[in-house]
Design a protein around this nucleic acid. Sequence first.
DNA 1: TTGAAAGCGCTAACAC
DNA 2: GTGTTAGCGCTTTCAA
Lengths: 393, 393
Amino acid sequence: MYLFFFNKKRKSEKNVLEHIKKCFRAHRNCVFEHIVFCHQTLLYICLNMKKYTIKDIAEQAGVSKGTVDRVIHKRGKVSQKALEKVTRILEEIDYKPNPIAQSLKNNKVYQICVVLPDPKEDNFWIPCVDGVDQAIEEFKSFLVDIKLFFYGPSSTKSFKEVNEQILKLAPDAVLLSPLFQKESINAVKNYRSAGIVVSTFNSQIDLEQTVSFVGQDLYQSGRVAAKLMHTIVPDHHDIVICHFSESLNNAIHMQQKEKGFRDYFNGLKGTEHNIVTLSVDQMNPDRTLINFLESNNKALGFFVTTSKSYNLVEILQDHSHKDIKVIGYDLLDKNNDLLKKNKISFLIHQSPKTQTYLGLTYLIEHFLFNKEIPHTKLLPIGIVNSENLITYL
Amino acid sequence: MYLFFFNKKRKSEKNVLEHIKKCFRAHRNCVFEHIVFCHQTLLYICLNMKKYTIKDIAEQAGVSKGTVDRVIHKRGKVSQKALEKVTRILEEIDYKPNPIAQSLKNNKVYQICVVLPDPKEDNFWIPCVDGVDQAIEEFKSFLVDIKLFFYGPSSTKSFKEVNEQILKLAPDAVLLSPLFQKESINAVKNYRSAGIVVSTFNSQIDLEQTVSFVGQDLYQSGRVAAKLMHTIVPDHHDIVICHFSESLNNAIHMQQKEKGFRDYFNGLKGTEHNIVTLSVDQMNPDRTLINFLESNNKALGFFVTTSKSYNLVEILQDHSHKDIKVIGYDLLDKNNDLLKKNKISFLIHQSPKTQTYLGLTYLIEHFLFNKEIPHTKLLPIGIVNSENLITYL
DNA sequence: TTGAAAGCGCTAACAC
DNA sequence: GTGTTAGCGCTTTCAA
């Protein structure tokens, strides 16, 4: 589609029409269709692009469809003369094969395996399953087969096992949440050497062998949290970066968030806040926290680097403390309740559902329609308060 | 795809396998494929769904493909006996026609026209053009033709003209930004009686004749702004709802936002804020504002209901006022600059690009692949500060 | 009421 | 090196 803008006043309608027709008669791939006048002095002209097929090209070049196909796919066995003639036409009309016809001809059922931590053990992953379900539903009548596998979020062994089993299945692609760096790199290498396409989501992995990553910039999300904290906590109060974690595997995530958080405050002209880091012992979180609070009565803002904000708030509540501000991650039910009750000021949304949904649709549409897969897709960092929460659910 | 969970300990691997095979031998549409053991006590079994074609069904039912097709599309001329036999099989296997084959057979170029206000006159609409461009790019090799039309954002006449011209083009669908209620309802009726599908975005229109609306809940976005204002403006200060508008057409939008904003504060237990509404005369905004500020020195928070926050901030700057907090809408370049400089505290993102992109892809995938179009898609209300701004651009 | 056959655009195997 | 042809799954026309 092209739009051309002319000054309506300069020529009469009829003259313009003639002029345009003459201009575009030469363009073989433009079919003059209609003329539309509207909006102030602008003239809109609609041209339709003719959709060419290999048959058209074959006729134009005086060769057979087979030859055209050989040229398009560079399969050789074409004379120099035919090659030149056909390529010239292809370029001239900017030929793009009909992906629907290609797909039909292809007629292959693509197998995609999704690997993520068991949502029963860490409910951060529940929305990821929803994202997979949505993609399955949306493409159920297409020739794709999506299989879902879980591993224990703190068991490298189960992660290895799952990937070995999937390797045996020999799918066309794997969408992977690479929680464990070392094991993931190994798994990806195995997949790649078996010719299996690998996409990742949520956790980034420093490896060029994956075709795509869908996730969030964790460093930047730390900065976002810091900015929010800065706007809600008055000067001369301490701020606590609080690492709650079930397993040690997301240590890197927490570090990136902490770095972003601290960098934001360090970048301020005169820093009025003292920032301390607190790692909460998962075995005995209450004790750790109470001890901390007793020795630090200036702490007013808490930044929880994982989805465990509710855990912090519950403990704080039991020790009926002053008006402490909490900023955390992830729209878990428990967090959402506390957000509505103003016990949590903001939650940062990592869009887990969108991550798997997008990761999958990229793969599917690539296989079915040759669509390009973006190498890195960083999702917006969602700031959620009690009022826009509902629009994210 | 199905996953079945068993307790691994209960049976030996071999027994389980036999058991499952027996269970599913009856299921004609499940092909037993593989068995996978992993993760704690869970057993995962992968079954592949056979993808049936009308040929398969025809053979099963002992009729021809033509008859099956007649049954599927309820085109009659089928004997009772054949009808029953075929429908039974169709239900049993939950047959879904291959949308790719349907699309190829169909082989029609779908024409879609997009109608929006001229971005040169109001740059809120620039991202909408980007969304259209993205959809065009993504589907350029498919049989769709997308045309873009502009009207003057304050000229009902140009709006009428554009729609009349499009009606002559007789496209398959129109994606419309219905700025003017009355004129839009009329245009939609004309389109519908010409059998043209109409989707809307950005502004809602109380009409059942549109198949889809993509936009945002403006009332709720007012509440979101109020909540943010509440967290950043201390008690006992006045808050100003500030209506800046170029044309009167978005009066309804501004009202909805104001209602949400006021409702939030009215819902608070002891309201500590006095809220006033200020309509800024577009002809002489400086004078209006300066007069207002002189007679109201307790005003600390400003909620701008349109994308014109930059306008307010510019005026405030010239009169070097105290630390006034501004919350506004839309990621225009000017607003973004002020957000980064902390002259604006928050911007609410209405995702204009996503609105047109989604509105278009819904239509396209409906035409090409029979996908369902959601009747209403309300996008998340994005809260943007200086740190997550970049992730939205 | 039914079946046979053509054809959408593209690919690939197979003759020549 | 080249053209012909069959076929992917579905729809539709036409003849029986």
